[in-house]
C-alpha cells in the first residue's frame, strides 16, 4: 500500500479503530476505543495510565504539509501518530531548514509540553498523511501532574527524541547524501511499516538539506545498487537488509535506544 506525502494523491477515508470493530455509528463521536492502541507509546502505558488519558484523546486526520507546531509558537496538542508520519524540522533564521527527527506510530509530538514548557522547540510538519490521536496541551499537562508514571513514560520517549536529533547531527556531517537518503528511508520504514512511499524530490531535498536535482542523483545511485525502486515520485524499498548494510553504523542508534527503553512496544 502506498500513501501520499505532500498532497500528491487523493485523500482516502481513514478507518478508525471504532469502525474497524464495526461500531461505525460511533466513529464520528471520536470515542477512542479501549482496545490496544495502534500508537506504540500509548500501547506501552499501564492500564491505569491509558484509562487516564483515553477519554482526553481524539482522533485527527493529518494532511501532508500540515504544520502542527511552529518554532517558539504555542503547542496546542500533543499528537500520537497511528499511521501518519511527522517531521521535526530545525530552521535557521534565514529560513534554511533541515530535518532533525521523525515521529511515527512509535512516538509523539508535544516535546515542549512533556518538558514542562509551553513553546515549540522545532517545527513539526506532517510528512505522510494519515491518522493520529491527539490531546490538548492543557489536558496533557494536567495528567502529567497527576501521574508520575505517565510523565516518566513520555520523558523516556524524549530521550529517544534527543538521541535521534544528535545522531542526525552526526550523520549530516559524516555520511554522504546517498547514505543519508538510505538511512532516511529505513527510518521511515520503521515508523510507518510500509515499503513504498510517494515523496516529491523537492520534499526529500529539504529533508536532506541538498539541492533538489541532487535527489535524482542519490536515488539513481541507490537504484543502481538495487536497493530501491524509484519511479516518478514513487520510492519503493527493494532490499531492506542491503540498505542497512550500506548505511552501516550510520543507522540504528535511536531505534536501538527505543527498543531498550520500550522493550514491549513491538517496534
Amino acid at each position: 500500500m502506498t500513501r501520499a506525502a505532500n498532497g500528491l494523491a487523493a485523500k482516502a477515508a481513514i478507518p478508525t479503530a471504532d469502525s474497524d470493530k464495526g461500531t461505525t455509528a460511533d466513529a464520528r463521536r471520536k470515542v477512542i476505543s479501549a482496545a490496544r492502541p495502534r500508537n506504540m507509546l500509548l500501547r506501552g502505558l499501564s492500564a491505569q495510565d491509558f484509562a487516564l488519558i483515553r477519554p482526553r484523546l481524539e482522533r485527527s486526520t493529518l494532511q501532508a504539509k500540515d504544520v502542527l507546531e511552529e518554532v517558539n509558537g504555542p503547542v496546542e496538542y500533543a499528537y500520537f501518530p497511528e499511521d501518519s508520519l511527522i517531521s521535526v524540522i530545525a530552521t535557521q533564521r534565514d529560513g534554511k531548514a533541515i530535518e532533525v527527527g521523525m515521529v511515527g506510530r512509535e512516538g509523539m509530538t508535544g516535546t515542549a509540553i512533556v518538558l514542562g514548557n509551553g513553546e515549540a522547540l522545532n517545527e513539526c510538519r506532517v510528512q505522510l498523511e494519515g491518522s493520529a490521536l491527539r490531546i490538548p496541551a492543557a489536558g496533557l499537562r494536567e495528567l502529567l501532574s497527576r501521574s508520575a508514571s505517565l510523565h516518566a513514560q513520555f520523558l523516556r520517549y524524549m530521550q529517544v527524541v534527543l538521541v535521534q536529533a544528535t545522531q542526525t547531527a552526526l550523520v549530516n556531517s559524516h555520511l554522504t547524501v546517498e547514505k543519508r537518503l538510505a538511512r532516511w528511508l529505513l527510518m521511515m520504514h520503521d515508523r510507518v511499516g510500509e515499503n513504498e512511499f510517494d515523496l516529491t524530490h523537492e520534499f526529500l531535498a529539504a529533508m536532506l538539506g541538498v539541492r533538489r536535482p541532487g535527489v535524482t542523483v542519490a536515488l539513481h545511485m541507490l537504484e543502481g545498487r538495487h536497493l530501491i525502486r524509484s519511479t516518478r515520485s514513487h520510492i519503493g524499498i527493494r532490499d531492506r537488509a542491503g540498505l542497512e548494510e550500506f548505511v552501516a553504523s550510520g543507522y540504528g542508534i535511536p531505534e536501538e535506544h527505543y527498543r531498550r527503553l520500550f522493550p514491549g512496544a513491538g517496534f
Binding site: 533538489r212 536535482p213 542523483v217 539513481h220 543502481g224 515520485s233
Partner: peptide, 17 residues
C-alpha cells in the same frame, strides 16, 4: 527538468523545478 546522465543510464527528473 534536470535529467541526470551516467554513461548510458539516464535518470529522469519527472518533477522539475
Amino acid at each position: 527538468f534536470f535529467h541526470y546522465r551516467d554513461g548510458d543510464r539516464l535518470s529522469e527528473d519527472y518533477e522539475g523545478e
